[in-house]
Amino acid sequence: MERIPILRMGKLLLVTIQVDMHDRLAMTLQDDLTSRIVKDKAKGVLIDISALDIVDSFIGRMISNTASMARILDAKTVVVGMQPAVAITLVELGLALDGVITALNVERGIQMLEQHSDQ
């Protein structure tokens, strides 16, 4: 089955979404990430969406839910690299991604997560 790879870097999990995801693939990623947070005892999750041309309500919800599940599992999620056109569209669509922490790029995202995992 098609899957999006999850990389481990110390206490962090890194995901770069590089394919145009269909809904089942998005759900698989959500399940895989929550399992890996527990298995790898991860303190942070970084989701890089810089290669995503669109984020619709389904993918937006998957990102929000993943962040909520991670929080319950004591891990912090940062979403990085959102394209400006995607941000404009998301807000107009009515999806503000409340509760999701974002950073402009991977470097800043990792900094935020490392501060959290050192605490």
């Binding site: 669109i54 984020v55 309500s57 056109a85 404009i88 569209t89």
Partner: peptide, 28 residues
């Protein structure tokens, strides 16, 4: 369908923001 809409709108010369909005609507 998302891919087809993008190809069509690119060929017609639509800007990136308009493309993104309509592809997102198409996806919904």
């Amino acid at each position: 369908m998302r891919k087809l809409v993008r190809e069509e709108m690119t060929a017609m010369g639509f800007g990136l923001v308009d493309q993104t909005k309509i592809i997102t609507a198409a996806s919904e």
